[in-house]
């Protein structure tokens, strides 16, 4: 019977670990695994399918996350349609439509980047990412000006909120709460996306992503398109209500 405890040896100095032990048990991983294939996968195919499924499940999660906001929207819209229509008139529809256009272009340039990754064209991966960041940046810039004009008109909910339009009751403030929460959460996702793209530039330029293994680019593309889809719904929900009446 062994006297050595299998438990953690917290006294062991890090760095002085049993290097041989790792190498021995890890040998097949190091020896037979091609570059870019993680040790626990058997093939590129398995790795690719896993990462896409994982990304899609993450997007399902995102759908439910935004879904909570949309649920609030649907409920209050069905309760206070009139107030929502009146409040929506304070938003600039033309700018909203323009921003939608910009965002759709950014989705297209993302497709360009992913397509380039599939063909191993690292130059166009970088160009695609740069263009996507440019369009994303324009969108956020426009959003900034929209937000600041709301601030000037005292339409940011909270203690400073003032309503000078037709008298449709307090729920106009709820509309603006939802407007800022939904577009803000969307903008936050875009900021995160642009941050990740900035990080992606260097490995892309260095040719990290090959036609065999570019799961990261394609997975990120899915994320960016999802953010686009959220806006596709936000635009009519927030900007286009009660235009005709």
């Amino acid at each position: 019977m062994s006297n050595t405890s299998p438990w953690i040896d917290l006294t062991g100095t890090p760095g002085q670990k049993h290097e041989e032990g790792i190498v021995v048990s890890d040998s097949h991983a190091a020896a037979t695994h091609p570059p870019g294939l993680a040790h626990h996968f058997e093939s590129y195919e398995q790795q690719k399918e896993s990462s896409f499924l994982g990304m899609w499940l993450f997007l399902v999660q995102e759908v439910m996350f935004f879904g909570g906001l949309f649920c609030c929207y649907v409920i209050y819209r069905s309760l206070y349609g009139e107030a929502f229509a009146a409040a929506s008139r304070e938003l600039n529809v033309f700018i909203g439509a323009l921003n939608t256009t910009v965002l759709l272009f950014s989705s297209f340039t993302m497709v360009v980047a992913v397509n380039a990754a599939k063909q191993g064209n690292r130059k166009w991966i970088v160009y695609g990412l740069l263009l996507t960041m440019l369009f994303g940046g324009i969108f956020l810039g426009v959003k900034y000006f929209e937000y600041s004009s709301k601030w000037e008109h005292h339409l940011v909910p909270g203690p400073h909120f003032e309503w000078h339009g037709e008298d449709v009751g307090r729920p106009v403030e709820i509309f603006f709460c939802l407007y800022f929460a939904m577009t803000g959460m969307h903008a936050l996702h875009m900021v995160v996306g642009i941050g990740i793209m900035l990080w992606m530039l260097r490995p892309a330029w260095r040719g990290k992503w090959t036609p065999e293994n570019h799961n990261f680019v394609e997975g990120f593309g899915l994320y960016w398109h999802f953010v686009d889809i959220v806006w596709i719904f936000l635009f009519p929900f927030l900007y286009l209500i009660g235009l005709a009446t």
């Binding site: 499924l53 439910m64 649920c71």
Partner: peptide
């Protein structure tokens, strides 16, 4: 992947439908 693409939206409909059923 097709299922997960549709699944999230389907689940949202559940959320919307039952909350609306109350409200």
């Amino acid at each position: 992947i097709k299922m997960s693409a549709v699944g999230g939206f389907f689940w949202l409909i559940i959320l919307f439908a039952f909350v609306l059923a109350d409200v």
